[in-house]
């Protein structure tokens, strides 16, 4: 996308923060967002970028997004998780642009009075985010292979990006 990188775009409401950023993610900051004297547990999930796909080396990943759609979907998921698991607070942040291998691309922090709800809420939120949020991952393999747009659905390989595009990559 040719969109100008903006530092952080976010939506906030009571006990909920969702955000997109081009900057390095900060685990401590997102934990502090959900920290509360009413909560006895904070669960933090950090998704980091892998150096391979099916044992093929990946140079780096890049994330594309429709920010207005992605933020709204993240907000809807956060609202639904907060109510379903009676969470005290939930915060979801996803990184965009190029992310180096081993760095965090997503952080989800949830707080709840007790640990079971926090564990479940965190896991449930991540699965929903991966299924629905309008963000796309490009795995850059380098060389002739080039980049491949991943699709979370059905473990699909997605579409190859290259010169002389010739349709589906059967991978």
């Amino acid at each position: 996308m040719a969109e100008e990188p903006v530092p952080v775009q976010s939506l906030k409401e009571d006990g909920i923060t969702v955000a997109l950023t081009y900057k390095t993610l900060n685990a401590r900051a997102i934990m502090d967002e959900v920290r509360s004297p009413k909560a006895g547990a904070i669960v933090l999930f950090a998704g980091t970028t892998r150096d391979n796909f099916d044992s093929k080396p990946v140079l780096h990943l890049a994330y594309d997004s429709s920010p207005p759609l992605a933020l709204q979907t993240m907000l809807n998921i956060a609202r639904s998780m907060k109510s379903k698991h009676s969470l005290t607070a939930i915060s979801i942040i996803h990184r965009l642009g190029v992310v180096s291998i081993g760095e965090e691309s997503i952080l989800i922090a949830v707080s709840a009075p007790h640990r079971q709800a926090a564990w479940k809420g965190g896991e449930d939120a991540l699965e929903d985010v991966k299924e629905k949020v309008e963000i796309w991952k490009l795995e850059e393999f380098g060389g002739e292979e080039g980049g491949v747009w991943r699709a979370n659905r059905d473990g699909a390989v997605g579409e190859k990006v290259m010169d002389g595009y010739n349709g589906k990559n059967t991978g």
Binding site: A70, E134, A151
Partner: peptide, 9 residues
Amino acid sequence: AIIPPVSSG
């Protein structure tokens, strides 16, 4: 907008 299958995370 055209929205291909998503792949966040």
